[in-house]
């Protein structure tokens, strides 16, 4: 397995996001210069704290001039571009998924090419591949796409743009496909999730034996940094997740155990909902999205009953990916991060 040298500069979009903050914190001590795109002034401090060598650029990935500023100067030349900017849960309208996830990717790819970037590491998702057909199945790099609703379609289209940029011949790209994250710097919705699990208010849909791949943010950052340098990775795509998928009932039991280990008493039992409830939510989600609306609870509940599992063998073999943090330790780290910030769980 041969590695390229990591460039001294990195450019990160979506730097104030859940993954972006973890990535910038990992890059800052190792690189001379990190340029980080964040949406506005409020987000800037989240990234600036990572180090004096982190330069924040304010703007939107849809704004050509914001990207000109991000790639301005000598740093773009030979830097690695980590494209982590995307919308997962739009505020209201489905359209935003396409504008940011597809349109933004096109504009960032274009700048990266013009700047002569070392590599374009694209953060994709499991959702271009939808749901596993049967409970024992795992997605591999050979699985056929089957985008799940609008988010899945937007990430699928974005992957196609990345592949085309690679085929064009003047930009090396690597696509990384992470599933559901957990870990520090989590958004408010994940804190609400911990709170609901702690109080016995978060349901298992069906028997809870359906499996979900998840990825600890630290493991994912490790995967991205391997994608940056592994010589063989150019033009390829990899699943990056914790070593094995988890049964949903194990995920919830582990979170409850992690909460207790951090001194937070867990109340109530584990509520259950019939699979039918998940199906009703899924129908609601489909209808709402067809009308251009996004209803986050329906989307999340509709997906909970499903198996979304992937196989990380190729990343282990080709990238030297070696995820070290377990679900239990990762959840504890995430809970501690909330407590350190005074968030009530």
């Amino acid at each position: 397995m041969s590695d390229l040298a990591a460039p001294r500069s990195a450019i990160v979009t979506g730097a104030a996001g859940w993954l972006g903050q973890n990535l910038v914190r990992a890059l800052a001590p190792e690189r001379d210069h990190v340029r980080a795109l964040v949406l506005n002034d409020e987000e800037a401090p989240l990234v600036e704290l990572a180090g004096a060598n982190v330069e924040v650029v304010l703007g939107d990935v849809r704004d050509p001039t914001a990207l000109d500023r991000l790639f301005d100067g000598d740093d773009g030349d030979g830097a690695t571009v980590f494209h982590a900017g995307a919308v997962i849960h739009p505020a209201h309208r489905v359209r935003e998924l396409f504008d940011v996830n597809v349109g933004g990717t096109q504009l960032v790819l274009d700048r990266a090419r013009r700047a002569g970037a070392h590599r374009f590491v694209h953060v994709s998702s499991n959702s271009p591949f939808g749901l596993n057909r049967d409970p024992g199945d795992r997605f591999t790099e050979a699985s056929a796409p089957d985008p799940y609703l609008a988010y899945g379609r937007s990430k699928f289209e974005a992957e196609a743009l990345v592949r085309r940029a690679q085929d064009r011949g003047d930009l090396a790209t690597v696509i990384v496909r992470p599933p559901w994250f957990y870990g520090p710097c989590q958004p408010e919705r994940q804190t609400r999730w911990f709170r609901a699990v702690r109080r016995g208010r978060f349901p298992l849909v069906g028997d809870g034996r359906n499996r979900r791949s998840m990825v600890y943010t630290g493991n994912l950052v490790h995967g991205l940094l391997r994608a940056e340098v592994a010589a063989v990775a150019a033009g390829r795509a990899y699943w990056i997740a914790d070593p094995e998928p988890y049964e949903m009932r194990t995920v919830l039991a582990t979170v409850r155990a992690a909460l207790e280990a951090e001194g937070l008493a867990v109340s109530g039992g584990q509520p259950r909902l019939p699979r039918l409830a998940g199906r009703v939510a899924e129908r609601l989600d489909v209808v709402a999205q067809a009308l251009g609306h996004y209803v986050q609870p329906a989307h999340v509940l509709g997906e909970l009953k499903e198996t979304i599992a992937c196989d990380v063998s190729l990343a282990r073999a080709e990238l030297g990916y070696a995820p070290a943090t377990t679900l239990y330790d990762g959840m504890r780290a995430s809970i501690r991060w909330c407590l350190e910030r005074g968030q009530a769980l």
Partner: peptide, 17 residues
């Protein structure tokens, strides 16, 4: 579709550039 409208917006921005 919403994807179509987004593609048209993208086309307009790129054409403008």
């Amino acid at each position: 579709t919403d994807g179509d409208l987004s593609r048209l917006a993208r086309g307009l921005v790129l054409l403008g550039e």
